Structure formats: C-alpha cells, structure tokens
Amino acid sequence: MNAEILAVGSELLLGETVDTNSAYLARQLASIGIDLFRKSVVGDNEMRIAAAIDEALNRADLVICTGGLGPTVDDVTREAVARALQRPLVFHQHLLDQIEARFRAFGRSMPESNRRQAYVPEGARIVENPRGTAPAFIVEDARGTVVVLPGVPSEMRYLWENAILPYLRDERGETGIILVRTLHAVGLGESVIGERLADLMAQTNPTLGISAKHARYELRIGAKASSRAAAETMIAQVEAVIRERLGSHLLGDERLDQTVARMLRERGKTLALYEGAVTAPLYRALSKEALESVRGVIMHPTDIPADDDAAQSLARTGAIDVRHRWRTDIGLALQPSGLIASDGFATVCVAIAHTGGVDEWQRRFDMRSDDVWDFAGTMALDALRQHLASA
C-alpha cells in the first residue's frame, strides 16, 4: 500500500502554524511498512481540497487528511471529501448527542454551528472522538481509502493510535515495517560522497539518501521488510559498503559534535580555544558535553592579519598560547585572513597545538555567506576529531 498525506488549513499555507501532524503520520506509516510518496498542504477551500483528494486518489491507495473538521464555516473538509467521492453528507444523531454531552460536561450549551460536525459522507465508517467534538471517519471507495482526522495534534494522535493504526494493521493487513537509520559523514564534499555511493542511491529497497548542512552530511538508509530483523539486516549490509567506501570520513550514528565530545571524554583531554572571529565559531561548533572539556577561551577578532601567511602564523601562535595559558592538553585556534579576494573568498586557518607540536589546516570560504562561520567551525571540529583519532 502507498499513501499520501493532505494537511488542510490556511494557517499552514500562511506559515502561521507548523505542520507537525504530517511529520508524525509519516513516521507512523513507516512503522507499518506503508510507503509515503507525497505530502501536500491546501487551504480552507472546498473546491481545492476536493481537487487535491481527487488527484491523490489517482496516485495513492490511501489518502490521509488532517484538519478542517471544526464547526466554523471555513472547516470544509467534510464537504470536500463528499464532493471528491461523489457522496452526500449524512447526519448522525448519535454524533450530535455526543457533541452536546461534551459541552454539558464543561457546563456549557452547544452552539448551533457544532451541528455540522455530526455529518459525514454516506457510507463512511465513523471514528468517534472522545477527546474533542470532531469525529474522524474512514471512507473505503473503489478508487482507494480516505482517512480524515481532526487537525488538533493531540486528538489526531489519539485517534490514529487507537483507531486508524489498528484498522490498517488488523483489517488491512499492513504489518510490515520501513526502518530508517541515519549515519553521519564529514570531510568530503556532497558530490564526492554521491559519486562513491551512486549505485547504492539508485537502489529501490533498501534506499539511500544524502542531505547536507554546513559541510556535515546525513546518510539515510531506508529498508522495507516484513519484520524489523529483516530490515535491520538489509540496512547493515548497506552500511558495511558505505563504511568501506567512505572510510574514516564516516562517523556512524553520532554527529560530528557528539563524536568530538565522546573522544575528548574517553581520552581525558582538556581543551583551550583561540577565537579569531567575533562570532566564536569554535565555541559554537562544540556540543554542551564537549564544552565541559574547555578550560578557557581567548578572543582576538580585532587582530586582522594582512594575508594568508599572517593568518596561519596567528592561528599557530594562538593555539600554542591558549594551551600554555590554561595548561591544557590541546589548544585549538581559528583565524581568518584579512585578505578577501574580489570573488568574496578568503582563507580561514586552523591550528591545533599539542604535546607533539602543532598541526595546521587552511581552506578558502565564501565570506559573503551567512553560514560561513558554521562551515569554518565544521572544518575546525573535524581537524580536532582527526587529531584525537590519531593521538
């Protein structure tokens, strides 16, 4: 079975509300082995919602709608589903009785507008909602199955876990699993990683995808199988190939900052920082746990070296100075050059002082980028990781 999710609400389109429901449902679908091919958002408009449902049924076996089941005139998902499936809305007295009882429990009388929540498309299976006034429903149509849930996250999750999930698992036989494992890599460009793993990324099951942020890479392995054990075996086989091809650039389950924190702790190393940029990229790159190993920081953003050689020299002396000043095992320094080329690029230098001497790195970055110091922090953190690995 394959599925699509349709989130309804103009507030989602306007960016006023974040659609957390779709992310939750995506994870839930994976837990029972249902492929999710698309997520969409549509505003509170009956015709557009109906069109979106109609289009989704041309592609998917299961369409899950969230939102638009309230009592106000802009809550039109019920009408849209009925239009898309060409079924009339039918009034159910017992639903109205439940809605009125919920209002009485709060010591209030039910507004007449809530009456519209007692209507569902003809032939729909009603899913009663003890957590709110909007019942959910399931429509099994010749074209596919449409599940409609309230948009309130707590109600949606309750109804999914207690009604929809059992329905899909027990009645529709969806008992498989889609398992995802995320690995982390650093020190290679996204294109290089993509070239080395191109054949794995072309597979349909298991799948492999790459995402990048600040020169740190997430490799997501997804496997669909009839059991967790079978999916884990498939993932392990792909991971073994990735490890062989990426070598030390593959960190495993840990992020770069987590890896550095663990290595500092396991080796009992202390650290001091020299920051040559006012944004303190070294301090920002370290995790809270890693900062427990930091004994001191010197900031000299006003020292602007005239060229790349001066920047590397300042990074070297800065790393040595902070190590001696705070009597730490390691001094880590980052210093940008003051020489910015006409294309906006400049050299950023990193130095690590330790008992065996000083190790140095440098790389050119686009200084016009808002993320330049995040990229520089990644370079420095990876340099520290390499040093700790060889120590």
Rank of each mutant, 00 (worst) to 15 (best):
N58W: 11
R59H: 10
A60W: 01
A60I: 04
I64M: 12
T66W: 07
T66S: 12
L69F: 07
G70Y: 04
P71N: 12
P71D: 09
P71S: 13
V73A: 15
V73N: 12
D75I: 12
V76H: 05
T77G: 05
E79P: 02
A80K: 04
V81F: 13
A84Q: 11
P88F: 04
V90W: 02
V90A: 02
V90S: 01
Q93E: 14
L95E: 08
L95P: 06
L95Q: 09
D97S: 09
D97V: 06
Q98W: 08
I99A: 08
R104T: 00
F106R: 14
R108C: 00
S109A: 14
M110Q: 02
E112A: 14
R115K: 14
A118E: 10
Y119P: 13
Y119W: 15
V120I: 15
E122P: 10
E122K: 14
G123D: 10
I126H: 06
V127T: 07
R131P: 03
T133Q: 02
T133I: 04
T133S: 07
A134I: 13
A136C: 10
E140N: 10
D141A: 12
G144Y: 07
G144C: 06
G144E: 02
V146W: 12
V148Q: 10
P150K: 11
E155I: 10
M156Y: 01
R157G: 01
R157S: 01
Y158M: 00
P166M: 06
Y167K: 02
R172C: 00
E174L: 09
T175A: 04
T175Q: 10
T175M: 03
L179H: 08
R181Q: 13
R181K: 15
H184D: 01
E190W: 10
E195T: 14
L197T: 12
L197F: 11
